[in-house]
Amino acid sequence: MRLFLERGFEATTLDDIARAADVSRRSLFHYFGSKEEIVFSTKADFPTLVADAIRRRPVDEALLDMVENAFLELAETHLSERARNLARLIQDTPALSAGDQAKYEKVERVLASALAQKKGRPETDIECRVTATAAIGILKLSTQAWLVGSDAGPSTFGKAAFAALRRVAG
């Protein structure tokens, strides 16, 4: 990741990565099929982090509150300048931004499932699915606001976005 952040995604070769990791290129391909996989491996645990944050929420909490509070917890514990630089690299690299959308889709499914389990509802529960879809939209918007230089961070934007959603839905 250091190489990608220093040189950029396109300028960093698999040979550069193998040298920096002190492994052969063949060994590198044993673990990763592409440079994109290397980048996304750093975020592979995000769906699990989201599900775990939902599991820690009180069961009697409203769905939207549950998701907002879980996301705020994650923002407090997992955001750093390195995470911001990685998110910016992904956003600014076309080969990565498409794959990032697939990550959001997976997180949305995991979130809907975690909400349904927490509330004792079926996996197909429409309220859990709608809540997850709206929350992922807010997560994307919050990340974008963070990347364009908002000093307040994604938490501030996220709180405002959840409040806006409640006003629109109310």
Rank of each mutant, 00 (worst) to 15 (best):
L111D: 00
E68V: 03
A18H: 07
D15W: 13
L28R: 11
E37K: 12
L111R: 01
T131W: 02
K119S: 07
P122N: 09
E61H: 10
V59G: 00
L28F: 13
V148I: 14
V110I: 10
D125H: 15
T42I: 02
G170W: 11
D16R: 08
I38A: 02
P47L: 00
A102N: 12
F29G: 05
T124N: 10
E108L: 12
T156N: 11
Q91W: 15
D100Q: 09
K159A: 06
V59F: 03
R55W: 09
R109I: 05
T77C: 00
M66L: 10
F40V: 09
A135M: 11
G8Q: 04
Q91T: 06
R84L: 03
R19Y: 07
D100Y: 07
S34R: 09
A132S: 07
V168P: 09
A112S: 09
F46Y: 04
D125G: 00
V50Q: 00
D65L: 07
L141N: 11
I90M: 13
S113L: 14
G158F: 12
D60C: 03
L5F: 02
L14W: 10
L72Q: 02
Q117P: 03
A87V: 10
I136C: 05
G33D: 12
R7Q: 13
D15H: 14
R121V: 08
T93H: 10
A145P: 14
G153V: 02
V168K: 15
V110M: 14
D60K: 08
K103S: 11
S80E: 05
L28A: 08
I136K: 00
V67S: 00
P58F: 03
D16Y: 06
G153I: 06
Q117R: 13
F32S: 05
S113Q: 14
R167Q: 13
K103P: 05
V39H: 05
L89M: 09
S155Y: 14
T48D: 05
A135Y: 10
R109V: 04
G120P: 09
R166S: 08
A11Q: 10
R84C: 02
V168H: 08
A161W: 05
D22I: 14
G149T: 03
A164M: 09
E105Q: 15
L139H: 08
D92S: 15
P122R: 02
H30G: 14
T77F: 04
I126H: 11
A21I: 15
D52K: 04
Q101W: 03
T131P: 06
E123V: 11
L115M: 06
A44Q: 13
L28N: 04
P94D: 12
S142Y: 05
R57A: 01
D45A: 07
R84N: 00
T133E: 10
S142L: 02
D15T: 15
A11P: 03
E36N: 13
G153P: 06
Q91L: 13
D92H: 07
L96P: 06
A87N: 10
C128M: 09
T42L: 15
I138V: 07
S150E: 12
T12K: 08
R26G: 15
L139V: 05
D22R: 09
